[in-house]
Nucleic acid binder design. Sequence first.
DNA 1: AACCAAGTCAACCGCTTACTA
DNA 2: TTAGTAAGCGGTTGACTTGGT
Length: 347
Amino acid sequence: MGRSPCCDENGLKKGPWTPEEDQILVDYIDKHGHGSWRALPKLAGLNRCGKSCRLRWTNYLRPDIKRGKFSEEEEQTILHLHSILGNKWSAIATHLPGRTDNEIKNFWNTHLKKRLIQMGYDPMTHRPRTDLFANLPNIIALANLLQHHPLEDHAVRLQVEAAQLAKIQYLQFLFQSSNNYNPPLPTPSSNTQHHNTNINIGDLGAFNLTNFVKENSTPCLNLSNLENQTLFSNENNSCSQLLHNNQDNTQQVPFNFQTHLNNSINEISCHNFNFDQKNNSPSSPLNITNILPSPHSSSHLPPLAEISISNNQGDSSSNSTNNGADQGSSSYWPELFFEEHFMHDIS
DNA sequence: AACCAAGTCAACCGCTTACTA
DNA sequence: TTAGTAAGCGGTTGACTTGGT
């Protein structure tokens, strides 16, 4: 199968479209429909290749195109779908009316991907980046250093606490590595498919650590939001029960990380986390409420099983770029906020 | 004001897939 | 079944914009 000749044809214009060209294309399609894209330029009187016309129409001139900033809901949807579908931009675009695959792809590459990286997440796998852990010993060393000195201000104390939480996560990571423990990631559909939905203590550790860092104040979880997450919906889940048992979100909730790691963790610290809803910034664009696949966000999406996930062997793009999503699991979205200023402060 | 670096996004390139003769 | 073609898709490019110095 040969590649179709297109814009290499002599004399065809390339580059930005002029308003006049746009008008010609719009007028023609209004009257005749696009029909054969290859034939369209000649019929419409455009000195462009059909491919260029199609792209201009689908990405810019189509009347149902929605332009402007992506809403938080759209961001959330993109993040969620990308965790499932990977770089299947057109598939993602079908769930965002008025948005083109190109626009979503650009938005991902220029905003969301960078944000994930900044948060310490691998944008392809949606998992915490392992190289993050390489920095943890440094964080821990700093914390140990500071612990031998009077803690004079709140900010320093907070950093130490953050580092202690990092220890917890680091231990969890080591534990998982040594046991080759790789639990299935929770997905909106995995609950209904009776997969293991037990929350990974490392996730919680990461969540709390980074939420802590982000807020630069007492770490907190928004209980009412968390309760809406399918991630926490398993009633038999000890973490879920822990949360459910403490619905009064104004009270102090001991968060003891009740896991197989308890012994090790208890040697380090045992934190009392204040679950104060007020402290969970609702305006945060990557608030966990926005990120975790919520019943609300899922409600306008088809069930996972209905989403067409192309795993074509011949699809080189999916082979090379979709490795995370193709592992048969979706990702989870604990909030990680390793903001640069924090990392700079530590380093 | 001028320069530069980083960010943004429209458009292109090249590959795959679907369709058809 | 095979080969040619059209369309779709994802990655990449490069022009333009913005912000900092």
